[in-house]
């Protein structure tokens, strides 16, 4: 399988708690956090938690899914712009696939993202639902 426990575990602060890095010099917020600011190049950051609401910037409905996701198919994924302007990619669930539109208000919910087979580790993280 592709995803190992260690690789999953390393991203827990982002996946569970939406932790991002805010550049202390210019205020740019990076999700996921980075070592070097994309905007000003400085290297000092403070950990901030992203807001849990935003809107859909673009989306699609995946109908041919990777193996780990075929049971969910068809499912929506979207680019979300959170209230503070930070963007992230997420599944959009609990939604009528025909009623997704640009600007749809959404909020973050904690969900199971995938699993390593029936006897492997469960991988959790964020998805969005209509707000």
């Amino acid at each position: 399988m592709g995803l190992t426990t260690a690789r999953y575990w390393r991203e827990v602060p982002q996946r569970y708690r939406m932790e991002a890095g805010e550049c202390t010099a210019c205020g740019e917020i990076h999700f996921p956090p980075r070592r070097i600011c994309m905007k000003c190049g400085k290297q000092k950051f403070e950990t901030v938690v992203l807001p849990d609401t935003g809107k859909v910037i673009t989306w699609t409905v995946i109908r041919v899914a990777p193996d780990e996701f075929t049971d969910l198919s068809p499912y929506a994924v979207c680019l979300v712009e959170l209230e503070n302007g930070v963007r992230l990619m997420s599944q959009l669930v609990d939604v009528d696939l025909d009623e997704i539109e640009m600007g749809l208000p959404v909020k973050i919910e904690f969900r199971r993202i995938r699993e390593d087979g029936a006897d492997g580790v469960l991988f959790y993280g964020y998805k969005v639902v209509p707000a």
Partner: peptide, 16 residues
């Protein structure tokens, strides 16, 4: 529960 929901995910939401 949706296929991506379980005791853990619902507990996180209730606790939040």
């Amino acid at each position: 529960p949706a296929p991506d929901q379980d005791v853990i995910t619902m507990s996180v939401e209730a606790t939040r």
